[in-house]
């Protein structure tokens, strides 16, 4: 027993170091890319308010008010437009402003100045002028935390053109203007400049929203599938006013897919 105690006192710094590292890395691994939970909501409430204050100091008030009105009007128009285009499927759109955005990390995120009290909730897609940007993963009363396409922890479902093949869209953390479309069948036909659109399969966005265009480069072939570069349409350096959208009947579609015999696979 004494030997054990001597050992502990001799190496106490190393032991404390490993304990603290285990705590920090455990926290990091469990939350990286998907920071969720009660603390994030509290932190969002505080940080969102401060971020908004910071933003207000650097904004022209009159122009800002005008932008808000235009954005709200845009949201209404888009909402009715998507309802018509998507076979009657109802889409609710809320306008919001980005009060914080990180774009230099591999796990980027952004914070919106609207939260659950404004109708925003996790699972909603975020777009800007019809271009897909990311999705909300956490919402406090007045602020929401979202992950953009340029976060290497998340993947998106995308389609080449309106009727082309569907593939996985991922970001490799090298360039905020480019992403990769993976697992394309080798029979897929496409050309540089072709539009890459949302597939609508994940429920964050309706089908057909612009993500980017196929880059002018040779596709990589791994023996079975193709990987191609995408030039992203969104300018992540200058995000400001955005729209958060939810597909109203998506929950019933999800419930239906959960009830199938192979659900969960």
């Amino acid at each position: 027993m004494r030997n054990l105690w001597n050992l502990i006192t001799q190496y106490h710094i190393a032991l404390v170091f490993f304990a603290l590292q285990a705590l920090a890395l455990g926290w990091f691994v469990s939350s990286h890319g998907y920071p969720r939970g009660k603390w994030v909501q509290r932190s969002l409430a505080w940080q969102g308010a401060w971020n908004q204050q910071m933003g207000q100091w650097s904004r022209l008030v009159e122009l800002d008010a005008l932008n808000r009105e235009l954005l709200a009007e845009n949201a209404k128009l888009r909402s009715s437009m998507y309802r018509t285009e998507n076979t009657g499927r109802e889409i609710s759109i809320h306008s919001a402003q980005v009060v914080r955005f990180t774009w230099t990390s591999s796990a980027n995120h952004f914070i919106l100045n609207q939260g659950s009290k404004n109708g925003l909730k996790p699972g909603m897609g975020v777009s800007q002028n019809g271009i897909a940007l990311g999705r909300i993963i956490e919402a406090s009363d007045h602020f929401s935390l979202a992950l953009p396409i340029i976060n290497q922890e998340v993947e998106w479902s995308a389609r080449i053109g309106s009727a082309g093949p569907v593939a996985r869209l991922l970001w490799d953390a090298h360039d905020i203007g480019r992403a990769q479309l993976q697992d394309l069948p080798r029979s897929a036909t496409f050309s540089p400049g072709d539009s890459v659109l949302t597939s609508g399969f994940q429920g964050y966005f309706p089908a057909g929203m612009l993500i980017g265009w196929i880059a002018d480069e040779t596709p990589e072939f791994d023996g079975q599938f193709l990987t191609i570069g995408i030039e992203l349409a969104a300018d992540f350096r200058s995000l400001n006013y955005v729209e958060a959208m939810s597909i109203m009947d998506w929950e019933s579609i999800e419930a239906l897919s959960q009830s199938t015999p192979n659900s969960g696979s």
């Binding site: 603290l20 920090a24 691994v29 932190s43 935390l145």
Partner: peptide, 22 residues
Amino acid sequence: AGMGATLDFTCHGGGLFMSSAV
């Protein structure tokens, strides 16, 4: 650890700042 954890809590670092500071 305390310094890093405070930053993680306030800036959504998720343990990254704590680990690096330690």
